[in-house]
Amino acid sequence: MSMDIKQIQDLIKFVSKSGVNEVSIEEKDFKITIKTNQEPTFVTASIPTAAPVVAAAPVAAAPVAAAAATATPATPAVAAAANDEAHLITIKSPMIGTFYRSPGPDKAVFANVGDEITPGKVLCIVEAMKLFNEIESEVSGKIVKILVNDAQPVEYDQPLFLVDPR
C-alpha cells in the first residue's frame, strides 16, 4: 500500500475534524501515524524508499478556519435561545458529517419536538465518509427544539437538539 499526498491530506483533514486523538496505518513498506491534540497536528510518514517527514499544520489549519467561519452565523441564534431558556441541555454533534433525522428516506424520524428521551435513545444519524453513525442521547428529558434540518452538513460540536431535562 502506498498513499499519495492528496490521500494523506484528506486523511489529515478527516482526523482533525473527527475528534480522534491518534490514527496509525502500517503496511510492510508504508507507515503513517497522525496524532492530534490542542496543539498543531503533525504527521510523520516513512517509506523505505526515502520519504520526507510531512508537517501537517498548514493543511489542518485551513479546514479549522473554514469550520469556524461557517459555524459563526449560527452562534448568535443559539446564544439567544440559550439566554431565553438557560436550563436547557444542548446535544451536540460528536463529528463532522451529514445530519439525518431518520434511518432512510421512507422511514420514520428518530425523534420529534415534544418527544421524551432517555440515555441510549437514538436521536439521529451523522454520516461521515459513507459510515452512518447513530447519535444516542446521554440525557433524559423532552426535546424542545431541533436545530438542524434533515440532510444538512454539520460541524464537530455543532448544536443539534435542545432538551428540557426532567
Rank of each mutant, 00 (worst) to 15 (best):
L131V: 14
K28H: 02
T41K: 00
V109H: 03
A86K: 14
A68H: 11
A71T: 07
A55W: 02
I5L: 12
T70L: 09
A60H: 03
A71W: 10
A80M: 10
P63A: 02
R101L: 11
T98D: 03
S46L: 12
S18C: 11
G120N: 04
K6L: 13
P52E: 13
T118L: 10
V154W: 00
A86M: 07
C124T: 11
T36G: 10
V126P: 02
S102L: 06
A128C: 12
A151V: 05
R166P: 06
D29H: 06
F42V: 11
E116W: 01
F30W: 00
A111H: 09
P94R: 09
E85G: 02
I32M: 06
T118A: 15
S24F: 02
A62W: 02
A151I: 01
V54K: 00
K28S: 04
K107T: 09
I117Q: 07
N21V: 04
Q9S: 12
T118F: 07
V144A: 05
K121S: 06
M3T: 01
P58C: 03
E85C: 05
K17M: 14
Y156N: 15
K142P: 03
A66E: 11
T33S: 15
A69Y: 14
Y100L: 01
A81L: 15
P52Y: 11
A57W: 08
D84E: 12
L123S: 08
